[in-house]
């Protein structure tokens, strides 16, 4: 079993309950390793954003600086893509960005579970974004919101072609949004585990031990790349969320 874990790159995505089995209305809601890392992420974010800012210093300390950097970064992203009125969605974008970012980074620590490598998590986030866009767009602009699917300046003859394309592109947004994040995290973590597995296999193969530094170098390089990907994907998720929200705020191309 132990050896199987070491060379099985999929095992890291296994979800298993940590406590007694719990269920709600017949649905299994056991506290799993995945849930544990969600709670850890939440605790970390709360630590920086709430505990770190408790003194409300005019001259910030380290934690408060960090909290302010996060805040200003997300606030700048939101205002630059959606304008000032997009700031009403700052809590949503900020929560998404921080949650994805911290989950991505936590997952890079060996032995941890990567929450964002679960398709259901990223899909839930994507649906949250798209439903927010839809509901807010309709609530604010009514039927005018559907002007989103009718680009202005397009000849009427082309509309039967354009509208389905726009609708499909809108529907595919939650899929692309969730798949991008999920696939990036999954692939990166599998790649890391595969190269780690090579080391184990090379050692097991006896005479090939001398080659073990090669996959090791790859792991180091990949880890650096994964740090970049972890931050980049969180940012991409946040900025795409902003772009979609911009459609809800200002429909019509």
């Amino acid at each position: 079993m132990a050896e199987a874990q070491a060379i099985d790159p999929i095992h890291q995505f296994q979800i298993y309950p940590l406590t007694e089995k719990m269920s709600l209305f017949g649905v299994d809601i056991s506290f799993t390793n995945s849930a544990l890392f969600m709670v850890i992420s939440l605790a970390l974010i709360a630590f920086v954003m709430v505990y770190g800012t408790r003194t409300r210093s005019l001259v910030p300390g380290r934690l408060q600086s960090l909290a302010e950097i996060f805040y200003e970064f997300v606030a700048d992203t939101v205002t630059s893509t959606t304008g000032k009125e997009g700031l009403r969605f700052l809590p949503l974008v900020f929560s998404l960005f921080m949650f994805v970012l911290i989950c991505n980074f936590l997952g890079l620590i060996p032995g941890t579970f990567t929450v964002t490598s679960q398709v259901i998590v990223t899909f839930a986030f994507a649906m949250l974004v798209i439903l927010t866009v839809l509901l807010y767009g309709i609530a604010r602009h009514g039927s005018h919101f559907f002007g989103l699917f009718v680009p202005s300046g397009v000849p009427a003859a082309l509309l039967p072609l354009i509208i389905p394309i726009e609708v499909i592109s809108f529907i595919s947004r939650p899929i692309s949004l969730s798949m991008r994040l999920f696939a990036n995290m999954l692939a990166g973590h599998i790649a890391l585990k595969v190269f780690a597995g090579f080391i184990v296999m090379l050692i097991a193969a006896g005479g090939w031990v001398a080659l073990t530094p090669l996959p090791m170098i790859m792991i180091v390089a990949l880890t650096a790349l994964e740090f970049l990907v972890a931050a980049l994907q969180a940012f991409v998720f946040a900025i795409l969320t902003c772009i979609y929200l911009n459609d809800a705020l200002h429909p019509g191309h």
Partner: peptide
């Protein structure tokens, strides 16, 4: 089921806190 349940709890808490 379990993932969504805990995601809901943690994310709603996070959103509320933020």
């Amino acid at each position: 089921g379990s993932t969504l349940f805990w995601l809901l709890i943690t994310f709603v808490t996070l959103y509320w806190l933020m």
